[in-house]
C-alpha cells in the first residue's frame, strides 16, 4: 500500500510535470497557434464547442462522484428509495439539455462549415497565388502555373496573400495538411480537389501528408515557407535561374519509382499542362460520365485546350499500353461533352 504522503508527492510531481509541459509547450500546440485566418477560426470553433460541451460534462463528473459517495451502501444515513425509478421532470431535463446544446452546436456547424468551405476563395486585395500540387510515392510536387516554375518537397508562398491549391495524386490517396495555416484536403488520382489558405506572417510552417499512403508515408513532410512580398519576388527571379527543369521525363523519373525524401529542388520551367496530364489517364473513363475540360482549363487560367489529351504515358500502368489508342479515338468527341461537376467531385 502507498503511504498517504508519498501519494501526495506523487500527485504533486505528476502535476508539476504536466504544468511544465503545458507552459513550455503552448506554442507547440500548433493547431492553436495558427498563422492563418482559416486555422484561427477553426481553433476558435474547437474551443467554443469544447466549452459548450462542458455544460454537460462537468455536471456528469460531479454527479458520478457525488452519487457514488452519497449512496454508497456503507453510508449510515442512507436515503435508499428503490421505488424511485421514473421521473417526468428529470426526464425532461436530461433530454432537453443535450438537445439544446446540440441545437447550438449544430447551428455553429452549419455556419462554419459553409464559411470555412476549403473550396471558397479567400477575399483579399491580392489575387491568389495558384499552386498545383501533385503527390507521388512519396514526394510532393508544387507547380506554379502562372510563373511556370515548380518545386519539390518545399512549398514557397507569399505571406499575406491567399494561396489557391489544386491537388491531385499520381498514385494513392493522400492528404495535404499545413496545420498552422488551416484545413487539410485529400488528393486523389484522376481528380482535382481544391484548397484555399493564407499565411498572415512570414515563417516556416510544417506541412505533411496525413493520409497513410504506403511505406514511405512517414517521410512525406515538407516545409511551407511564407516569405514577404519582396523576398517572394526575389525567390521567383532566382527560381527562374535554376538549371533544373521539370519536363515529362523528369516527372516520370520522380513519380515512376517509389522514392522517399527526393532532394528539395526548384525547377525553372515546367512541362506545359503537366498537372492535367497527370490526371488524364484516369479521367478518360470519366468521359463517359461527362467531364468538361474547357471550363476546367479556364478556371486554371489557361485558354488553350487540347494539350492534355495527348495522354500521359501510364506511369504505373504498364499493363495498359493499348490505352493511348482508345484515348485518341474518343478524345475529340467525349472530352467536349463532359461536365465540370464530375471533375471537381461534387462541386
Amino acid at each position: 500500500m502507498l503511504k498517504k504522503s508519498s501519494l501526495i508527492s506523487l500527485v504533486r510531481g505528476v502535476g508539476l510535470i504536466a504544468l511544465t509541459f503545458f507552459l513550455s509547450g503552448c506554442e507547440k500546440f500548433i493547431v492553436f497557434n495558427s498563422k492563418g485566418p482559416i486555422g484561427q477560426k477553426e481553433a476558435q470553433l474547437i474551443i467554443i464547442a469544447f466549452v459548450l460541451m462542458l455544460i454537460v460534462v462537468i455536471p456528469v463528473f460531479i454527479m458520478v462522484f457525488l452519487f457514488a459517495w452519497k449512496y454508497r451502501a456503507s453510508n449510515k444515513e442512507l436515503d435508499y428509495k428503490p421505488e424511485w425509478v421514473d421521473s417526468k421532470k428529470v426526464e425532461m431535463v436530461v433530454w432537453s439539455i443535450p438537445i439544446a446544446i446540440i441545437l447550438v452546436l449544430g447551428t455553429l456547424s452549419w455556419i462554419y462549415t459553409h464559411k470555412l468551405d476549403p473550396y471558397k476563395p479567400l477575399k483579399h486585395d491580392l489575387p491568389a497565388l495558384q499552386v498545383q500540387v501533385i503527390s507521388t510515392d512519396w514526394n510532393w510536387i508544387f507547380i506554379y502555373p502562372e510563373e511556370n516554375i515548380a518545386t519539390i518537397n518545399e512549398l514557397i508562398i507569399q505571406a499575406d496573400r491567399p494561396v489557391s491549391f489544386k491537388l491531385t495524386s499520381s498514385t494513392v490517396m493522400t492528404s495535404m495538411f499545413i496545420p498552422q495555416l488551416g484545413h487539410q484536403m485529400y488528393a486523389m488520382a484522376g481528380m482535382q480537389t481544391q484548397l484555399n489558405l493564407l499565411a498572415e506572417e512570414p515563417g516556416i510552417y510544417q506541412g505533411l501528408n496525413i493520409e497513410y499512403s504506403g511505406t514511405g508515408y512517414h517521410t512525406m513532410h515538407f516545409k511551407a515557407i511564407a516569405k514577404t512580398a519582396d523576398e517572394f519576388n526575389a525567390w521567383l527571379a532566382e527560381a527562374k535561374q535554376s538549371p533544373d527543369v521539370l519536363n515529362r521525363a523528369k516527372y516520370d523519373e520522380i513519380s515512376g519509382q517509389r522514392i522517399m525524401n527526393y532532394p528539395i529542388t526548384t525547377y525553372s520551367s515546367v512541362e506545359p499542362n503537366l498537372f492535367l496530364d497527370v490526371m488524364a489517364p484516369y479521367m478518360e473513363w470519366m468521359g463517359h460520365v461527362g467531364v468538361h475540360p474547357e471550363d476546367y482549363l479556364e478556371s486554371q487560367g489557361h485558354s488553350g485546350h487540347g494539350h492534355h489529351h495527348h495522354a500521359a504515358p501510364d506511369m504505373n500502368h504498364d499493363s495498359h499500353s493499348d490505352h493511348d489508342m482508345t484515348h485518341e479515338d474518343h478524345s475529340g468527341h467525349d472530352m467536349h461533352t463532359m461536365d465540370t461537376d464530375t471533375l471537381n467531385i461534387n462541386k
Binding site: 456528469v60 452519487f67 457514488a68 449512496y71 451502501a73 424511485w84 428529470v90 436530461v94 439539455i97 456547424s109
Partner: peptide
Amino acid sequence: SITTMAIAIPTGVKIFNWLFTMYKGKI
C-alpha cells in the same frame, strides 16, 4: 455533421439514466 451530433443526445440521456439509477440507491 448534424446527424452525428444528434447521436450525442440519446447517448447523453443514457449517461444520466445510469447516474439517476445510482441516485437514491444503495451502491
